[in-house]
Design a protein around this nucleic acid. Structure first.
Lengths: 228, 228
DNA sequence: TACAGAAAGTGACTATTGTCACATCCAAGC
DNA sequence: GCTTGGATGTGACAATAGTCACTTTCTGTA
């Protein structure tokens, strides 16, 4: 792999976008290129966390199984995103699994390699701090949503989170099934279905051949911030 | 303030416990000592985040007001804890307020001072990364609790989180009122009250003069991991 | 000691969501 | 074209927790 390629991937969505050439080269040199099929686990809950991944292509779901068996989807990761830094940093177990939801490639960086990189490039630590600050904000937003909002506004928020900014025709980044959406937004598949049907009647979204599209972005945003 | 004092405070609960003397001295030199009365806000939601705090004494509540007015308590901070690093790092707004719940003192460090410290002491960045890893784990645990558990197990978890490890007679770190407990655990005051009454009858906790104590730690732990 | 205001206890009712049980639909492959 | 499994649509019902409206009990203070 070449530095420019990596730069291209990181440029779009990553807080590592401003890496200089030496940093990119070092990441490639010390990193390990890995491929995954759909359904493969990039990270397994409960494992010791001795490496970090940078997603290069494809898409992956971060989810955890609670001790009572419930599955909770924490996030979906796009190319450019860093994964698995938490356990690497604090030396603890992996608290969540990361599963490829399509064919996926990633750059794996071991703890030792990572420490070298941190040592050689001072800006890397700061960059990673920003990545993590971002993650905490996302997590807090999720808590806020779970605590303060009823199912409607909450689903609206998750749909908006999945929406592409300059989206042609309100298409979503990922075409999740209703059960997957349910796991993501923390509500039952049936409830998702009913909510989407209602919004579909009101012309706020469309649900065709299993794919949700946002027709009325503004109204959905209003719902996402509604009082109840 | 002397370096040894700061070292003493950090030693107990902080991931900054292993700072060497030069680091401590630098923190004190560049930091700014501030005192707060009960009820004062150390950090205000919506403000720009240009500083970071290290709590030295007292206790503070981190909480956010959702756009629909709901108050959500994210955490309680003990001496030694770092506060406000997120907005400092990513340059965004403060997403939560931090309010002193008793007379409190803290060391404020501005962005510029913080950057100096990071530059001079290489280990600081790594330490902060660990602090943040820890925060993400806590947040994920909170999400897990909200999503996967009903009110009983959830309250059990928060009580355990408030419990002191080598506690004499199951006393909690903070004697929160039932409404405050409600905000923390995400359930109504009335529901908290009923749940505590039930557990009190079963001898799992005691509720005397407004103070909750954990009588049967083992059973409460079981409840915290119950299937429903 | 009396009083005020906050915190806690409690019953009745409501509401939101999950669960269960099916019927249907659709897309892919034989 | 058929078949089959997964994804969807929907009605009926149950359950958990919130809300409301009080009463009662503390706690600190004048």
């Amino acid at each position: 792999m070449k530095a420019e390629e990596l730069a291209g991937i990181l440029a779009e969505h990553s807080l590592f976008a401003d890496c200089d050439e030496a940093e990119l080269a070092d990441l490639i040199l010390r990193g390990h290129f890995v491929q995954y099929d759909k359904g493969d686990e990039l990270i397994m809950q409960g494992d010791p966390g001795n490496s970090l991944l940078i997603l290069l292509s494809g898409n992956a779901r971060t989810s955890m199984i609670a001790s009572n068996g419930h599955e909770i989807v924490l996030d979906y990761a796009e190319p450019g995103q860093v994964i698995g830094e938490i356990a690497l940093l604090d030396g603890g177990e992996r608290t969540a699994s990361v599963t490829a939801i399509e064919p996926t490639t990633a750059l794996t960086i071991t703890r030792i390699a990572f420490e070298e990189i941190l040592k050689n490039h001072k800006n890397m630590a700061l960059r990673l701090l920003k990545v993590m600050a971002n993650r905490i904000r996302t997590a807090n937003t999720m808590i806020e949503g779970d605590r303060a909002y009823t199912s409607g506004p909450r689903l609206a928020r998750y749909l908006l989170r999945l929406s592409v900014v300059g989206a042609e025709e309100g298409r979503l980044k990922l075409d999740l099934s209703q059960s997957e959406l349910g796991n993501y937004a923390g509500m039952s598949r049936e409830h998702i279905n009913r909510q989407l049907s209602t919004w579909s009647e009101d012309g706020i979204v469309s649900v065709e051949s299993g794919k949700v599209r946002i027709l009325n972005h503004a109204t959905l945003s209003n719902i996402a911030n509604a009082d109840s």
